[in-house]
Amino acid sequence: MANFFALIPAAGAGSRMRDELPKQYLPLAGKPMIYHALRTICSSLRIVRVFVVLAPGDDEWLRHDWSEFSGKLVVLQCGGATRAQSVLNGLQGARDISAIGDGDWILVHDAARPCLGETQLDKLMDELAGDEVGGLLAVPVADTLKRSDTSSRVACTESRENLWQAQTPQMFRYRLLVEALSMTGGATMTDDAGAVEALGLQPKLVLSDARNLKVTYPQDLALAELILRNS
């Protein structure tokens, strides 16, 4: 039986939030944003260990109390210049200190998705546990999509047929994910599934819902807090 591990890259600055504090530490429902993702993932009895990848020299982490996760949480200060590099560095660092097998599952989750629910997490693991490739949480695109020109005018309307909006966690076998990120370099990859796709493989889309939103702009914080308080 393959084991489940989780990895949360949290080495970015979140510049679109227009705040000096890195996005993962912004206050949300009385806690740093990353706390909420950690609580859901660390609470899963199926996940053996959770790795958080921080930027080297990240002192903000030490200003908060993470003791409730101490039995499962491991901090790695090896973040890279891009998300993909942080994930790859984290995977390599995790294996140095844990007995992770090539066939074990890695669930990579964004620190900026604080509203992940236990039901979504379990559904992802249930649907992919026997899959040959792995996959990700996602939702079908519901809105009409417009492509703009350089002057912010509509150039055309894009078909939304068969289009999905990717979420996290994204779940792949350890060896496959390391291979994918190493071969692509991650320079233009905005998610792990994209690196796996570049190998010619087809990750499975696991139906999620809009509550698992990504906090990108300041107004997203209010919506995330509303979801958390009503979940």
Rank of each mutant, 00 (worst) to 15 (best):
N3I: 00
N3E: 12
L7K: 07
P9W: 00
P9H: 02
S15H: 10
R16Y: 10
R18V: 13
R18G: 06
L21K: 13
L26M: 01
L28F: 05
G30E: 13
G30I: 11
G30P: 03
L38N: 02
R39W: 06
C42L: 05
S44Y: 03
L45I: 10
L45P: 08
R46D: 12
R49G: 08
V50S: 15
L54E: 05
A55C: 06
G57M: 07
D59R: 09
E60M: 04
W61N: 15
L62A: 08
R63A: 07
R63M: 07
H64W: 08
H64R: 07
F69Y: 03
F69W: 04
L73H: 15
V75H: 03
V75F: 04
C78G: 03
G79V: 02
A81Q: 10
A81T: 07
T82L: 15
A84Q: 03
S86L: 00
N89P: 05
L91K: 11
L91T: 01
Q92W: 14
D96V: 02
A99R: 09
D104Y: 00
I106S: 00
I106V: 09
V108G: 13
A111P: 01
L116K: 07
L116N: 07
T119G: 08
Q120L: 06
G130P: 00
D131L: 03
V133W: 04
V133T: 15
L136Y: 11
L136K: 14
L137G: 08
L137S: 04
A138C: 12
V139K: 01
P140A: 04
T150E: 08
S151W: 07
S151A: 05
A155W: 01
A155P: 00
C156Y: 13
C156F: 12
E158T: 11
R160Y: 03
E161V: 10
E161K: 14
L163H: 11
A166F: 12
T168C: 14
P169T: 10
M171Q: 10
F172P: 01
Y174F: 04
R175P: 02
L176E: 05
L177F: 02
E179D: 06
T188D: 04
T190F: 08
D191K: 06
D192T: 11
D192P: 00
D192Y: 05
D192R: 01
A195P: 10
V196M: 04
E197C: 11
A198K: 07
L199Q: 02
P203R: 02
K204G: 01
L205E: 09
L205K: 12
L205H: 06
S208N: 02
A210W: 14
V215C: 01
Y217E: 03
P218S: 10
D220A: 01
L221F: 12
L221P: 03
L221R: 15
A222S: 09
E225A: 06
N230T: 14
